[in-house]
Design a protein around this nucleic acid. Structure first.
Lengths: 212, 212
DNA sequence: GTCAATTGGTATTGAAAAATACCAAAAGAG
DNA sequence: CTCTTTTGGTATTTTTCAATACCAATTGAC
């Protein structure tokens, strides 16, 4: 039956801009937490306030909302993947530091959620796959490639293809421990275990790329 | 409205055993292609023939059907991951050969499909995540660990923790190239490129683990 | 051959959630 | 202040698909 009063004034009315901001954030959270399919508009609306109509007039629907968010999701979540290094420090020091930041990021709940989302929905949403890869693994690899290039110029390593090596270094951090965490088969390693993983990876690469 | 004739005899009737075989195969295909959620029983039935009832009496429902397939899927698909090596050959040779087989398997359409399914649905079906990891990455890593152990005994490398190193070697093969293929951002590398990837990884590890 | 059990095929039900419709209230332009 | 536009909140429709029901036909045991 119809209510006698259409709007009942419980929720405050926000400006279009405010509402959109709140909506985007809520949608982003829900999509990351639940994944695309399991995320329901009801849940998003419940968290954001406002109404269904807003989503439809402003975005056009669930899929359009998601697509509108994709780039933002990837960019906002994956900021820590692109890193600078200190040209004064040693290769070992830089490599360790970058690796530590990258691994910590990879294992953070938010990035894990995003990664799961990207890998699960990448087939259905190629833009997501693209945005994820570019903002994440690719830009991380570029940081490492730049570091390897610098080291090669200095004659510290012999590394004919820094791009490939960088991609492999990122890969070595996504080892079976990472995979288990991704699959929720074990909790994320603590700082101590992370350090061990990084030390191993750094050592292998420093020797492997020919540091004497 | 009801049809005047219940069964119209179009499809041949298979024995229970045959029907189950056909059903399992069709279900497996659909699940691998579409993922769990997007796979519909209608599609499975359309491909397998037979009727809904068969699925419900024999398995109990969609989820039960999927679970009944999971272990079989993982085991059947991931056989090539567990490998033996030749104790007479050199470390480099063995490492290259195992890596080649593993990488080829990882990049095969079937294994890619299964991996996507496992990573996407691992949260909802922990058994799948477990079965996938154990039959795949874990057993692959065990092969490499055994190889590293042998090499260490022979004094060819210094490798205090062969398990960790093996997990990392598997990781280095899942580099950014692999990730792009996984995300369908590029086609799988051909034999030539795979060889290059493997050569790089092997070189890094051989030096990295202290072969002189 | 007889008959109970199983299977094929389809129709129906039920639930979840997306898409749409609607109306009154608030916001904002003038 | 007045009036148009947008928004909030809810109800309704539509869609999708799993789950179930049902009937005839086939199978297979005896």
């Amino acid at each position: 039956m119809k209510k006698e009063s259409g709007g009942k004034g419980k929720g405050e009315r926000l400006s279009a801009e405010q509402r959109e901001t709140v909506l985007r954030r809520a949608a982003l959270d829900v999509f990351l937490e639940k994944g695309y399919r399991a995320a329901s508009l009801d849940e998003i609306i419940r968290r954001a306030g406002g109404s269904r109509r807003t989503i439809y007039t402003r975005f056009g629907g669930k899929e359009a909302l998601f697509k509108a968010l994709v780039t933002e999701i990837a960019d906002r979540t994956l900021v820590p993947m692109r890193q600078d290094f200190d040209r004064e420090s040693s290769l070992r020091e830089n490599l360790s530091k970058l690796a530590d930041r990258l691994l910590s990021a990879l294992l953070s709940p938010t990035v894990l959620d995003l990664s799961r989302l990207a890998l699960a929905e990448g087939a259905r949403f190629p833009e997501l796959a693209r945005a994820y890869f570019d903002a994440g693994p690719r830009s991380a690899a570029e940081s490492f490639a730049a570091l390897f290039d610098l080291a090669r110029e200095r004659g510290e390593i012999s590394c004919p293809d820094s791009q490939t090596a960088a991609g492999q270094f990122v890969g070595i951090l996504r080892d079976n421990v990472y995979l288990q965490v991704f699959l929720r088969l074990r909790p994320a390693p603590d700082q101590r275990e992370r350090e061990k993983i990084i030390a191993g990876a750094v050592e292998i690469f420093l020797h492997g790329l020919g540091t004497f």
